[in-house]
Design a binder for these strands. Structure first.
Lengths: 167, 167
DNA sequence: ATAAACTTTCAATAATTATTGAAAGTTTAA
DNA sequence: TTAAACTTTCAATAATTATTGAAAGTTTAT
């Protein structure tokens, strides 16, 4: 596998993994491209490399900026805008976890809390609903908290000790 | 909020969260319905309750069974098949984490490993590709391992101590 | 062996989501 | 102020994904 093959393979794989971290294909591919680029890229360059339209590139770059993963780089003397992505995987993970928590998990926790707080009318089905949604609420909340704490730690002594415990 | 409202809210919320754990809406809704049901349900009952077609119900139940989340219950004297879901959230989390790891994360780790193992031809761009995909490989592998270990632990002393550390 | 009671399959269709591209908008230079 | 260089917006279209429903398949009882 040479450089070009490896690059294409990486971009397409990372792109299709997009769903896993909750973003679409083009968005993930743009991020992947920037992630292995040695310099900021212009919109033209991104369009060319990924064979996607100007509009698509513009919208997805905007979303990546909303997530805080991509930033505009203004290159002195250049009219065009250039883009680059966060290069530290640790920081990338932190941002993604935080955003997904805020956008998707927190709202669900809220609903689970509401649902599990309905009045117990004494019927079996109500008891079951309360019991099960409460269990789900607690699990979701715990998982959310742990993931956030985990990615927020730097690779410091705590994480290192945990890794030892867990591997 | 009464029982019916709470039930509808729970099913639709859990359904739309489906993407987060990598399954489709109908599949998540069927699982949600079974999760709060006090008894196994027949296909008829599921169709009726969720207002979805027979084919859709059949296919999604099959998928849930493939995941190992739902099981057929044969009720003596009954011709129909009845279905129920795993009721322990801890076990549910374990299964989902394991399946997603196997189906999606492991293959990506493999590709990242291949890509980061290409020959270093000394150029800057190759060095960057290797460096960044290697970082991503290590992060992904670590995250995958930790999540699996976490959900595999019972709520035993280790998890409890971690919770203390992390909350 | 037949029919009733059920489940599965899958081509057709609908719903959703992503993408395009050209017009409108913005910024900069002269 | 004008025009060139660029970006954004968004209605139209394409691609993808989910859903239907009826025919085919299976199982059980008689």
């Amino acid at each position: 596998m040479n450089y070009e093959e490896a690059k294409i393979k990486f971009i397409s794989t990372w792109g299709s993994l997009g769903t896993l971290w909750g973003i679409n294909k083009a968005m993930a591919q743009i991020q992947a491209l920037l992630f292995i680029s040695t310099k900021p890229l212009s919109m033209e360059e991104i369009m060319e490399e990924l064979q996607i339209s100007r509009g698509n590139t513009s919208m997805n770059l905007r979303q990546l900026m909303d997530w805080g993963i991509v930033t505009k780089e203004l290159i002195p003397g250049e009219r065009k805008e250039y883009f680059s992505t966060e290069k530290e995987v640790q920081e990338l993970a932190r941002i993604v976890a935080k955003e997904r928590s805020r956008r998707e998990i927190k709202p669900v926790i809220k609903v689970l809390n509401e649902v599990s707080s309905i009045e117990d009318d004494g019927t079996e089905k109500t008891k079951e609903l309360i019991k099960q949604t409460k269990a789900l609420h607690d699990l979701t909340e715990t998982a959310d908290a742990m993931i956030n704490k985990l990615v927020n730690q730097q690779q410091n002594w705590i994480t290192k000790s945990l890794l030892k415990l867990f591997t």
